[in-house]
Design a protein around this nucleic acid. Structure first.
Lengths: 229, 229
DNA sequence: CAGTGGTCTAGACCACTGA
DNA sequence: CAGTGGTCTAGACCACTGT
């Protein structure tokens, strides 16, 4: 008889899905629902709050709770370490450092990360292989003003990503996905044709407001990123 | 003096970010934290539970709560209606229906959605414009076995997406992002070159286990999808 | 100003799981 | 079996915000 917050949540959701409570419509208040399910208001609150977090309903004090007109559709993607991604798919992971230099940050990077002019950065080109075939090219810049210890770090056997995750574990990230054509260098590294459509992700990372790193990841042709919701 | 769950959450997070509590390490139990913050255990519970939802810590009964070794990095994307996406960017939205037919589902679609053999489907090609320029090509299949009323629906002035959202508001979705090269048709519709790299998303949708629709959305060259986390 | 959600509390019992 | 998180309760006060 005792309804759990999961029961309440599931029941409310089914009323919405089955159309008993229509999009845009008001649903009963917490006190009323608590009576109906004969449970405490806190239990109802958690159920409805989670539905609000899921984008199913919209809550406003005094105005009550409404079923969203257009349910907010959102997808969640896990952003795994490349090594885990490859190993979890059952393939063998291999890493290679292609190029490594310390340079003054180019203008586009200075703009993108809002760096001081003439900031020094470590620029790395790395390749990640799955079962011996090129899987992803990593073009990374690390801001040496924020992370001076990155100048000495050894990236010859382990990718900078793993070092960064260990060094700056909790940071703010901006991420973008796009499609881009392979240039000559990319085609050579990823063993594809110049002009091939490559799935590309770019990430910029800050820690306590300080720009840490920027990376462009280009996947081999045909790569798909998937999710359910 | 009374600590809210937000205070507690923020304080715990800052201890983790500043390294006071290290990745992999155990953090105090709920009772102990409740004493430290002089608040109820339920308050601490909510704070730590949210940190677990955010992928910062990992909780297990009896074992306690640990800071995650590798924080689970996950990005959330809102999947807006194309109309809203364009209008919210300040552009003018226009829609055009390019092609419309009812056919027997091709094999790849039957396989993808696990349809009955010889299922009939409505196949639509639509173009979405931003400020008069082609923005996205929509290649959609609607399963008429599940949604017979889709055979009569009028998609000449409004895209099938809006009709579907109104008709089957709550459904299960599988989504995939990739890059693909423009073929002749895509190049013509999106006003680009054959072979151009296009950002592409594919969605398959079910409702109560029944396949509803499959759509491939191809964006004009240069499109980026972004998020923060 | 009044009604609704937002949050806290003190206490309780339960469920899982590591030692 | 014992310790930790998971959840529920009954009651309370607060903070918004529509009317």
């Amino acid at each position: 008889m005792t309804a759990t917050y999961r029961d309440v949540k599931a029941d409310i959701l089914s009323k919405i899905v089955r159309g008993e409570w229509e999009p845009g419509g008001l649903i009963p208040g917490e006190v009323e629902l608590a009576e109906q399910y004969s449970c405490a208001r806190a239990t109802v609150n958690r159920a409805v709050r989670e539905l609000a977090d899921d984008g199913i309903v919209e809550r406003r004090r005094k105005a009550g709770t409404r079923v969203r007109m257009t349910p907010v559709r959102q997808a969640r993607f896990d952003i795994p370490l490349i090594r885990s991604e490859i190993e979890q798919s059952g393939s063998t992971y291999r890493y290679a450092l292609i190029d490594d230099s310390v340079v003054v940050a180019p203008d586009w990077l200075t703009a993108r990360l809002t760096l001081e002019p003439e900031s020094r950065a470590r620029h790395l080109i790395c390749l990640h292989y799955a079962d011996g075939k090129a899987y992803q090219l990593e073009d990374r810049w690390i801001n040496l003003a924020t992370l001076p210890q990155a100048e000495q770090a050894d990236f010859s056997t382990t990718g900078p990503n793993e070092w960064l995750v260990a060094t700056v574990p909790f940071s703010d990230v901006e991420i973008a996905f796009s499609a881009s054509a392979a240039d000559a260098a990319l085609a050579r590294y990823l063993d594809c044709m110049v002009g091939d459509a490559l799935f590309t992700t770019e990430r910029s990372t800050w820690w306590e407001g300080q720009a840490v790193t920027h990376v462009r990841l280009s996947f081999r042709p045909g790569h798909r990123m998937t999710a359910q919701y």
